[in-house]
Amino acid sequence: MKTQLKKGTLDMCVLAALAAGDSYAYELVGILSRTMEISEGTMYPLMRRLQAEAWVSTYLVESASGPSRKYYTLTAEGRRQLSWMQQEWREFVNEVNAVLGLAAGAGTGEAS
């Protein structure tokens, strides 16, 4: 089984959210928790790991109200990683679906 995939699912989701646009931690938690369950406490250790992997980098944006805010952005390496992960994900889902008989067209062909 693709263990890397299992471990990397949340990583992939964060990278995908960042691919849609630069964001900061609180906003990222908001985006992800709209569609999936995510602990707030997970976010910072996760972001530090992604930074250590050099998949994301940070920059500070001065805000009118109070101190600056840290934004995360995908690096070129991060983009490559994301597309590789998406590829793996699609293959994995297809394989599992095929076994479960859920693949598009497989069910309808048998039924009719």
């Binding site: 900061y24 931690a25 609180y26 906003e27 602990s39 707030e40 406490g41 976010m43 910072y44 109070g66 101190p67 805010r69 840290k70």
Partner: peptide
């Protein structure tokens, strides 16, 4: 690291949550 968490608290408070709620969420 501390700055990161301070920022998170600011954002949470701005969204109308209580300090205790945010702290509980962070673990």
């Amino acid at each position: 690291i501390v700055d990161d968490y301070c920022e998170y608290f600011r954002d949470g408070l701005a969204a109308g949550r209580s300090e205790a709620d945010i702290a509980a969420g962070l673990g």
